[in-house]
Design a protein around this nucleic acid. Structure first.
Length: 235
DNA sequence: TCTGCGATATTC
DNA sequence: AATATCGCAGAC
């Protein structure tokens, strides 16, 4: 493994270091290295969304689309619990839109929100449960210029703009070029994968809160995020 | 920094 | 009629 990868991973593991502060991003990932990272094991996804969601924090998400390559680190998610959860798309059973939610864990569910923005979910648990984890925001690690282009952000890639690249579920999909064509794909492919970055969120940096923008089941703390990160959808 | 609003697919 | 959103305009 390249020296700088090791250094970066050590940086992540260092006590009290927050991987999601801008200062820790002065690391340049190269593509050949990202491509060697192995997808998470199938068994990782075959658990409840409540279990999987906080463990997705700190994981790497790689997307290859139209010969463009993107890599980012997940820092904010929400768990949706399937047919028992009134806030979940799966609550009322399968429809044409949410069909892939009922596939086996490790499947990608993408839907169009408010007729405008796509949102990307990681399906969890066994087939038929309909539980999933919404990816809300991420730290961009590779392909920043292309992400900015997709986001229609012009001007310099300064701190302000970089923090705005993937800080929201709609921004994330727009930045990475995710659309309905990703719906039903799996996260263990060459072109779409979630990988382990050997980083465990320190207990004191694991934040949780109610989910954002819902009207039902508001009291449940099913949003999980890395506390203090500058890349969250809301500070 | 904060509000309200418009754009609009899918489902009930 | 409501929604798992975003960016902008205009008020503070």
């Amino acid at each position: 493994m390249a020296v700088r990868t090791v250094r970066w991973l050590m940086n992540l593991s260092a006590k009290n270091s927050n991987p999601n502060h801008l200062n820790n991003l002065f690391f340049s990932w190269d593509l050949s290295l990202i491509e060697t990272l192995r997808p998470l094991a199938h068994s990782f996804y075959l658990r409840s969304a409540t279990k999987v969601a906080p463990e997705l924090l700190g994981k790497g998400l790689y997307v290859r689309h139209k010969k463009k390559h993107f890599f980012c680190q997940i820092i904010e998610v929400e768990a949706y619990l399937g047919s028992t959860d009134p806030a979940s798309h799966a609550f009322k059973g399968p429809t044409q839109r949410n069909r892939s939610m009922f596939e086996e864990g490790g499947t990608c569910y993408v839907y169009l929100s408010y007729g405008l923005n796509y949102c990307m979910n990681v399906v969890t648990d066994i087939e038929g449960k309909g539980s999933a984890v919404l990816i809300r925001s991420a730290v961009p690690l590779f392909g920043l210029k292309e992400i900015a282009k997709n986001r229609h952000i012009s001007g310099p890639l300064d701190a302000k703009n970089i923090k705005n690249l993937l800080s929201g579920p709609g921004k994330l999909t727009q930045g990475l070029g995710i659309d309905r064509s990703f719906d039903g794909m799996r996260f263990d492919q060459d072109a779409l994968k979630i990988v382990d970055l050997k980083y465990t969120v320190p207990k004191k940096q694991l934040g949780f809160s109610p989910r954002i923008g819902i009207s039902k089941a508001k009291e449940k703390n099913l949003r999980f995020f890395i506390k203090g990160s500058e890349f969250l959808s809301r500070p």
